[in-house]
């Protein structure tokens, strides 16, 4: 698969009054053309900041991308000017945000919002743009698409608004779609509709997808590879089957064991991860997960583990990944 996006050593910090927050600490990953990948992590893990940095959407100040490069179609996104970025955003790289209630402008019609990017990026006239907008609404499953272009966002339900956001993102045929928790604000039956829609659209249009989420269950049937983030670091990355079958980082393992499984009858006590995520104002010269880790040894408290290859196409940032590979089950029940 030819590489579409390659992120190398990305570092993003927020310089706040309360101190410097190390949001993303030198992460690297790559995405192939038409590939789908998930970035999984809890709040504050840096999953959203890492992609917002690439798109130049970090509020500056206080935020700043301090190091790294992000090569997209042969251009380093982090070195581009605002105008050059604006040209890429929405056209080649599009994004769907978490909250469909607040990401649409309530005083403009849906048609106006859908055609804006078409006119700006593709230079279409009003008629062409309207026609294309109606096609897009139809594609994402909004009935009577043509008539509904003149409706306002409040006339649509939450699930429909997220469909409109997706239509907007895909209208210029981007080569990568970034979906930042697009279903978190929706009910499960509506979430299932949106996930199915994105899957179908990917088959039809062939764009690459980065799906950002906190829900390991959601992406299991959706993507080809998974990147797990914790405290601004990538702690594990692997092809989807390998990751769920045999997680090789204690955090991934802990996350999987702290979720009850819908399809399992005899449920043992949930293995929770003890403690809290760390304060990101510190710099880590130890493993950031060490204070919560049931496998911790002295070395973990002294040296921050780099990502080590643990198998074909997979890496883990744990000194004890070989030990974890030999073991079955989750070590300690806290």
């Amino acid at each position: 698969m030819p590489k579409l996006l390659e992120v190398n050593g990305l570092v993003t910090k927020f310089y706040t009054e309360a101190g410097v927050v190390n949001a993303v600490n030198g992460i690297s990953y790559s995405l192939g053309e038409g590939e789908s990948m998930a970035i999984v992590g809890e709040s504050g893990s840096g999953k959203s900041v890492s992609v917002l940095s690439i798109m130049g959407l970090i509020p500056t100040p206080p935020g700043r991308v301090d190091a790294g490069e992000a090569n997209f179609n042969g251009r380093n996104m982090l070195a581009l000017s605002t105008n050059e970025l604006r040209d890429i955003r929405g056209r080649e790289m599009a994004m769907v945000f978490q909250d469909p209630m607040t990401s649409l402008n309530p005083v403009l019609t849906v048609g106006r919002q859908l055609t804006e990017a078409l006119k700006l990026h593709l230079g279409m006239d009003t008629n062409q743009a309207n026609q294309r907008a109606a096609e897009m609404l139809d594609l994402v499953g909004i009935p009577n698409a043509e008539d509904r272009l003149s409706d306002y966002p409040h006339q649509f339900s939450g699930g429909q608004r997220q469909r409109i956001m997706i239509a907007m993102a895909l209208s210029c045929n981007p080569s990568v779609l970034i979906a930042d928790e697009p279903t978190t604000a929706l009910d499960v039956t509506i979430q299932a509709q949106i996930v199915e829609l994105v899957k179908q659209l990917q088959e039809k249009l062939g764009m690459a997808i980065i799906w950002i989420t906190h829900d390991l269950a959601l992406v299991a049937g959706l993507v080809e590879k998974v990147v797990v983030m914790y405290a601004g670091y990538i702690v594990e990355q692997a092809p989807v089957h390998d990751l769920y079958k045999k997680p090789l980082h204690p955090y991934t393992l802990g996350l999987l064991h702290s979720m009850p499984k819908l399809d399992e009858k005899d449920q043992t006590r949930l293995a929770s991860i003890a403690g809290l995520p760390p304060d990101l104002r510190q710099t880590f010269n130890h493993c950031p997960f060490a204070p919560r880790c049931p496998y911790v040894i002295d070395k973990c408290r002294e040296e921050n583990p780099p990502l080590m290859p643990t198998g074909p196409n997979r890496t883990s940032a744990c000194w004890r990944w070989e030990h974890i590979r030999e073991e079955t089950g989750f070590g300690v029940n806290v």
Partner: peptide, 22 residues
């Protein structure tokens, strides 16, 4: 049927019953 299961193999085999509308 709408609840995702954290297991890619089971997810691939699953027959989803997707509700239409809101």
């Amino acid at each position: 049927s709408a609840i995702p299961i954290p297991d890619p193999e089971k997810e691939e085999k699953r027959q989803r019953l997707i509700l239409e509308g809101d």
